[in-house]
Amino acid sequence: MTAEVAVLGAGMHPWGKWGRAFVEYGVAAARAALADAGLDWRDVGAVVGADTVRGGYPGYVAGATFAKALGWQGARVTSVYAACASGAQAIDAARARILAGLTDVALVVGADAAPKGFFRPAGGDRPDDPDWLRFRVLGATNPTYFGLYARRRMAVHGDTPEDFAQVKVKNAAMGALNPYARYRKRVTAEEVAASAVVADPLRLLDICATSDGGAALVLSSVEFARRHGAAKPVRIRAVSTVTPRYPSTVLDLPDIATDSAVAVDPPDEPFRASLARAAYEEAGIGPEDLSLAEVYDLSTALELQWYEDLGLCGGGEGAKLLREGATAPGGRIPVNTSGGLASFGEAVPAQAIAQVCELTWQLRGQAGERQIPHARVGVTANQGLFGHGSAVIAVR
């Protein structure tokens, strides 16, 4: 039997560039999630905050920061950081506390106030940090990496810039229907092609922005949810945060080298696919059971890779799946019904939580014009810095 926790409430602060502190966005999302759950802040026994590295010291102790802002009431606090997977790790920490019987109700919150332009490694010069080295030695900012990945897909699988543009067209159409999205305007393939080149072959509209925003969830034991009147709540059935199995996942430099003495045979699947497989195994389902998916579309080309890594199609068949309309509303497996990062931009600690908010609303039948009929099972996926990544499965 799978171990499940209930999603009693979901709330968000709209994404944008608001110029205010991250705490304000998180508190607004938390209050919205509590209202959605029909609970008072004093009913919460544990708070898990997803940290931001851009909010000063309060960002490094996000759990306590949000608890203080909501009003000290004795809840236990936890703060976690895992780059883009921070929100999912926060969900996992809250889930573990609930399943251990240590609390009935937990609040998960993530929020960010992102700088304009490229994300820069925080904390000054760090020559022992592969991310810092990638930026400073190679000049490989995130868009550069995205462009190289897109070129690889073109060379290996025959993807085209027109395929990448269609991902943006699809996601922008859904984001136009989402009141929390930063960009709420449909775009055409011609507009994508006419936007400025950032990292060939990717253009400005192929790459996600940086944003402010917040998201929150109220989680509980299934028993508490039923006592609270939620006879059949959305449940989180799996959270995967597995690490890669390759022995050389970081640059082989002093102080950060991977210990080859514990190396294992490399798997037949890439790291992102192993994240999904672990989630499917824990949930006792397969990709054929999915109703929808929310994936981390840092670039349009990366969304196509997620199709394959989630097992929605075979290797190299992502663009074909897109062209067939399978990942659009009305298709076999709609992807990024929220509008994705194409419509939101990155608010790093909030985004993995926001993905689960979208699954919750879809599985409840509360997604409005974005609603996927008869949605029963959804998966989220993202990959963060180093070996951090996540996949969450929710069911109704």
Rank of each mutant, 00 (worst) to 15 (best):
P349G: 08
D252T: 15
G330K: 05
A140E: 05
I372P: 13
G229I: 05
G325A: 13
Y280L: 07
Q362E: 05
E303F: 05
R126S: 05
M12G: 01
G213H: 00
S291V: 07
A328Q: 14
N171H: 04
D268G: 15
R184P: 07
A94F: 08
S260C: 02
E288I: 03
P127Y: 07
R227K: 13
V192R: 04
D43Q: 13
A10P: 02
Q355P: 11
L148D: 06
V105C: 04
M12D: 01
Y145K: 12
L8N: 10
P373S: 10
A88S: 15
L219T: 12
G63D: 14
V108G: 04
K232G: 15
L290P: 04
P14A: 13
L102R: 14
M1P: 14
A62R: 01
D129L: 04
A3K: 15
D131A: 14
V379D: 03
A122W: 08
T210Q: 09
E294L: 11
E358N: 09
T160P: 09
V264P: 02
G384A: 09
A90I: 11
P270Y: 10
F146Q: 09
V27W: 03
A176D: 07
L363V: 07
I236A: 02
V335E: 12
N142E: 13
L8Y: 10
G56V: 09
R126V: 02
A176M: 06
G63R: 12
V80H: 13
G158W: 12
S240R: 06
L304D: 07
Q89H: 15
L107W: 07
V197F: 09
L385E: 06
A90R: 05
A37Y: 01
A10L: 04
E324K: 11
P266Y: 04
L251A: 15
Q366C: 14
D112T: 00
A165D: 06
A35W: 04
S274L: 02
L359G: 01
R95S: 01
T141K: 05
Q383S: 08
P349V: 03
A6H: 03
P143Y: 00
W306I: 00
D309P: 07
A165E: 00
S220R: 04
G387T: 13
G331E: 10
L341T: 02
A106M: 04
